[in-house]
C-alpha cells in the first residue's frame, strides 16, 4: 500500500465533508466513500496542479456531487439548512415522538395514542349519550347508564349503544379524511371531553355512585373543574 498522507488531499476531503454536513450520516458516508481514492488518482495524473484547479473548489465539487446523487441542498428534513420554522418544529416534534416511543419499545409515542383511538371512540359515544340525557332533563345524572324518563333501562342502554355506534362510525370515517377534517373532528372530541368532565362531576356528586377519595382528586385538579362549578348541581 502506498497510502501517503497528503495534506492537500486531506484538506480537500475535509472541505467537501463539511459542505455535506447537513446530510444524514449514512448518506454522507456513501457520498464520501471513494472520494479519497478519487482525489489520489486525480493528484497522480495532474502533475503539480492543485486539486482545486483540476476539480474546482471543494464547495462546488460537493454541490455537484449531491445534486447528481439526488440530494440537492435543503432537500433533507432535519438538516442544518432547514430554515423554515414550521418544518423545523415538525422535525423536532417527530424526534421527541420517537424518543417517547423508544421508551416503550415502539417506533413513535403517537402510535400508542392512535392504537387507543377505538377505545376513545366508544367512551366518546357513551359520554354524548349521558350528556344528551342530562341536557334534556336538566337534572342530576345518577348513574353510568343514560336515563330515559327518569329511570335506567332498555331505552337508556339503547340510546347509549346507538351513540357509541355513531361515534365509532365517525372515528372510522375520519381516518380516511383529510387533515383539515380530522382537525375539526378533533375539536368536537375535545368539546365532548369537556362534557365528560361535567358528567363525571355529576356522577361523583350524586348519592347513587360514590367513589373513594383518591378518584375525586384528579377531577378536582383538572383545569376545567373551575368552569364546571356553576353547573346545574345545586
Amino acid at each position: 500500500m502506498t497510502t501517503l498522507v497528503d495534506p492537500e488531499i486531506d484538506g480537500y476531503h475535509a472541505a467537501v465533508r463539511t459542505a455535506l454536513a447537513d446530510l444524514p450520516d449514512a448518506v454522507r458516508a456513501e457520498l464520501l466513500e471513494d472520494l479519497a481514492d478519487h482525489l489520489r488518482e486525480v493528484r497522480a495524473e495532474s502533475d503539480d496542479r492543485p486539486l482545486a484547479d483540476v476539480l474546482g473548489p471543494p464547495g462546488d465539487y460537493a454541490a455537484e456531487l449531491r445534486t447528481a446523487a439526488g440530494y440537492p441542498a435543503g432537500s433533507v428534513p432535519g438538516g442544518r439548512v432547514l430554515l423554515d420554522p414550521l418544518a423545523r418544529f415538525r422535525a423536532r416534534s417527530t424526534a421527541i415522538d420517537q424518543v417517547v416511543g423508544s421508551a416503550f419499545g415502539i417506533a413513535r409515542g403517537t402510535d400508542a395514542l392512535r392504537a387507543l383511538g377505538p377505545g376513545w371512540w366508544v367512551l366518546r359515544g357513551w359520554i354524548v349519550a349521558l350528556g344528551l340525557v342530562g341536557a334534556h332533563r336538566h337534572a342530576h345524572w345518577t348513574g353510568l347508564v343514560p336515563r330515559v324518563d327518569g329511570r335506567p333501562g332498555a331505552w337508556g342502554w339503547l340510546l347509549g349503544l346507538a351513540a357509541v355506534a355513531v361515534s365509532l362510525a365517525a372515528g372510522v370515517w375520519s381516518r380516511r379524511r383529510s387533515a383539515g377534517t380530522r382537525f375539526v373532528i378533533g375539536l368536537v372530541s375535545v368539546a365532548i371531553a369537556v362534557l365528560g368532565v361535567f358528567v363525571t362531576r355529576n356522577l361523583l356528586g350524586s348519592d347513587v355512585v360514590r367513589y373513594g377519595g383518591p378518584a375525586v382528586a384528579p377531577v378536582a385538579a383538572a383545569p376545567s373543574s373551575a368552569a364546571a362549578t356553576p353547573s346545574p348541581t345545586p
Binding site: 500500500m1 502506498t2 460537493a62 456531487l65 447528481a68 446523487a69
Partner: peptide, 30 residues
C-alpha cells in the same frame, strides 16, 4: 463531464436499482 457529477450519478443509479456494485481488492492500491 464533471468528476463529481459522474460519482453522484453512479450513486443515484445504484440507489435506484439500475446498477450492482462489488469491491475488487487490489495489491498496489486501494
Amino acid at each position: 463531464v464533471g468528476d463529481a457529477s459522474v460519482y453522484g450519478t453512479l450513486r443515484r443509479l445504484f440507489q435506484g436499482g439500475a446498477l450492482t456494485a462489488y469491491v475488487v481488492p487490489s495489491e498496489s492500491g486501494p
